[in-house]
Write a protein that binds this DNA or RNA. Sequence first.
DNA 1: TCTGGGGTCCTAGGACCC
DNA 2: TCTGGGGTCCTAGGACCC
Length: 422
Amino acid sequence: MSTSPPRTIFHLDMDAFFVSVEELFDPSLKGKPVVVGGQRDERGVVSAASYAARKFGVHSAMPLRTAAKLCPQAIFVNGHPERYREYSAKVHEVLGHFSPLVEMASVDEAYLDMTGTERLHGRPLHSAHRLHDAMKSATQLNCSIGIGTSRLVAKVSSAKAKPNGVLWVLPGEEAKFLAPLAVGDIPGVGKVMEQKLHAIGIQRVGDLARLDDRDLEHRFGKWGLALAGKSRGEDAGGWFDNEVGEHVDPKSIGHEHTFDEDTGDAERLQSTLMRLSEMVGRRLREGGYFARTLQLKLRYQDFSTITRAQSLEQPTQMDNQIFDHARRLFFANWKPGAPVRLLGVQASNFESGSTQLDLLEPAQNERWQKALAAADHVRDKFGEASIGLARGMKGGFRERTHENPAALPGKGGGKASDAKKA
DNA sequence: TCTGGGGTCCTAGGACCC
DNA sequence: TCTGGGGTCCTAGGACCC
């Protein structure tokens, strides 16, 4: 047990972020049931729903067609990722005035380590209200702020502060605050874990806290032990243990695409793999990562999904190599002609740095690097659709020059608790 | 009701080595 | 030639998050 004074962590969460941003661009949407994420007859899920739409049971991660049935009068809006990024940057900027330790956890939520800022900003509740007001004047958007001694408590309390509120859990009161909450309110406890806990008679976080740590570890392994800590408000295990604002390199980079309609057309499938490979390669180069493992993801009509991975002798960040492996994996596993719903390409197992320049064919390698850098540059200037390796040009991408609503960074997650409220 | 796209973390089995 | 034990790497799948 550490004897250092408790930390003061803020978790700030924008209220109905995508919907609120859309309202700024079209004020006529205000107060109406609005669904962001795509049109009512499209294949896809709800990225965000306005509070008016939520009254009908619509929630994030729900299929758009389901939302349309629950709330026929809802207005369906395509997402605008660039708008959300723009407003996310504004949010980030405001936060920077309150603490140097800021971490955007996604487009619409952030952690701040406010420990030791009392001299400058005053007591936590006071500074939180100032932050809340500053956010409103800078962005015209509402947010909610949770304050606690850990990321976990801050996050749970911001959820309880919604909408448009501030909630401070006093140091030492963590267990008391959490005890009456449903176990599903703990981040990381989803539908499956919730059911398992219910099955052994655990409904509330307080029930969990009364259990023996070793018992939980025995039942649920590593996760059980983390869960025991969480029930007391500790940042036990995994990502939660990182310092706020600490830089963490990504562990994988991937892209996937769900077809508007399932297709068994080999040319179309290959061109999709090409495009996905290019997108992955591009991001590897931007980040300076070399991937040792490439993975193909394949989903059929019936939603059955397989992944097939392959590790390389020589790490890569080059489109053509990524495509070669993706294509090989695809044809080795695809039931020929079977309609495909989704394809994905993912790179992982990174070795950053320049130790893996191909020693076998340096000249060829260098030509490729130059060609790809030039292509990246052209894309920067003229947009993603302006260039592609030969195969990428053939297939089904011309249709996607418009903003694709399916490319939204998601809200969502479809927790059991969401479904139950529905 | 027919299920997006971006990720992280964990588990478990098999290969392989000592 | 019936069967050990630990460590590490690889792969596949699944829960979970926004």
